[in-house]
């Protein structure tokens, strides 16, 4: 019954930012229906996609995520009336910025998954995981983060001077 599990050389890390009313419930439904999907995804629950700050996506990439999924209620179905509309506009602009910076947009997926769409959740997660697996690890932001830490630790004369002047 269960297909043989294939071993992959690279297992991507996928972070999912989801709203609690639709997509989180949809993911729960996938669970109660015992659907199967790759174990690469880690779900972070928000009250609403409206709460999801684009900075979290950057942060996730910095922290080693290879793919990010953002999902909430279908337009018109927001539990908070209009949060997902704000999210939609925000992310439309944010995608452009990411593209400008040179991030492959294939690593980032926005979608609507309702509480009744366990199957769609599975498709979404599986699709993104497979896609990102082919793309390989996301290095750029991780390296940036390391540099940041490094420069924070270093004791340059400029920094010293700045500290002294305070």
């Amino acid at each position: 019954m269960h297909p043989e599990k294939t071993k992959h050389a690279f297992e991507p890390k996928i972070i999912a930012f989801v709203c609690t009313w639709c997509t989180y419930a949809g993911a729960d439904l996938a669970g109660t229906s015992r659907m199967q999907y790759p174990a690469n995804v880690r779900v972070l629950k928000f009250p609403c996609t409206g709460r999801i700050d684009p900075v979290f996506i950057l942060k996730a990439f910095q922290q080693g995520a290879d793919g990010v999924l953002v999902s909430g209620c279908h337009p018109g179905d927001c539990h908070y009336i209009a949060g997902n509309f704000h999210a939609r506009r925000r992310f439309a602009a944010f995608r452009k910025l990411l593209e400008f910076v040179g991030v492959d947009l294939g690593r980032l997926q926005f979608s609507w998954v309702s509480a009744a769409e366990g199957g769609k959740w599975v498709e979404m997660v599986t699709g993104l995981t497979e896609r990102v697996r082919l793309m390989g690890p996301m290095q750029e932001f991780k390296e940036l983060a390391l540099e940041e830490q490094w420069s924070g630790a270093i004791n340059t004369p400029e920094l010293q001077e700045a500290y002294n002047s305070i």
């Binding site: 928000f46 609403c48 209009a82």
Partner: peptide, 17 residues
């Protein structure tokens, strides 16, 4: 209502859910 849209929108991050 507790949706947090204000927090993600606030430019100075002065509102928190």
């Amino acid at each position: 209502g507790g949706c947090g849209t204000c927090q993600a929108t606030c430019p100075s991050k002065s509102v928190e859910l």
